[in-house]
Simulated assay, not measured.
Amino acid sequence: MSLQLSPYLMMNGNGKEVIEFYKKALDAEILYYQSLGNMCENSDYPIPEEAKELVGYASLKIGNSILMLSDSHPGQPHQIGNQVTICITADDNEKCKQIFEALQDNGGQVIMPLQKAPISPSYGIVTDRFGVTFQIYTKMQQ
């Protein structure tokens, strides 16, 4: 079983600018990029026209590390201080479920229940009892 932890940045509509900045400042390489409109075009949650060009999901390689980021979805509040989360990636749905449940134990708060999402067969967001927010997801099978 594979398990990976990566920083995940939630931006306030300036995700493209952040990507360009990190490309120059940190010699980042774009591994993956998808706009919010393309990512959610068949979603049950329609994206307003003005938000379709926002960053839906991007991953950047910086040295030997991966940095993930996206713009906040319309209607989700963006708070300075909460824009950095830790993304836990596993290759097994059961492992994701186990981690998700363990992090919500003893006072953790579910932000988004573990569910199927456009980027993963199992994706959810939980804040542990210490106030650290984690995005948990299973890798898509290639």
Rank of each mutant, 00 (worst) to 15 (best):
A58I: 00
G75E: 09
Y33P: 10
Y123E: 06
L60W: 11
L60G: 02
A28W: 00
S35D: 07
N64S: 13
C40Y: 11
I86P: 05
K97D: 12
G107M: 03
I136S: 05
D91M: 01
Q4V: 11
S43W: 01
Q104T: 02
A51V: 07
Q34M: 03
C96M: 10
V126T: 02
P113Y: 09
N42E: 15
V110R: 04
I111L: 14
V126L: 08
Y32M: 12
G108N: 02
L69A: 00
V18W: 06
D27P: 05
A58L: 04
K61F: 11
N14H: 04
F21W: 13
G37P: 03
K16G: 09
S65N: 15
D91T: 03
V126G: 09
Y32R: 12
D44G: 03
S120L: 02
S35Q: 04
G124P: 00
D92S: 11
I119M: 08
S122H: 12
A117E: 13
Q79M: 14
M1N: 11
D128F: 03
Y137I: 05
R129L: 11
D27W: 05
G13S: 01
N14Q: 12
K16P: 05
M10S: 08
G108M: 06
L36D: 09
F134G: 02
I62E: 09
S122N: 13
A102R: 15
Q76Y: 15
Y45H: 14
S59G: 09
M10E: 10
I136M: 00
G37F: 06
H78Y: 13
D27E: 14
V55C: 05
K116N: 14
G63K: 03
Q104D: 07
Q34C: 10
L103A: 10
K116T: 15
Q115S: 11
N64K: 14
M68V: 09
S6K: 01
E17Y: 02
G15E: 05
A51Y: 14
K52S: 12
L3Y: 08
P7T: 12
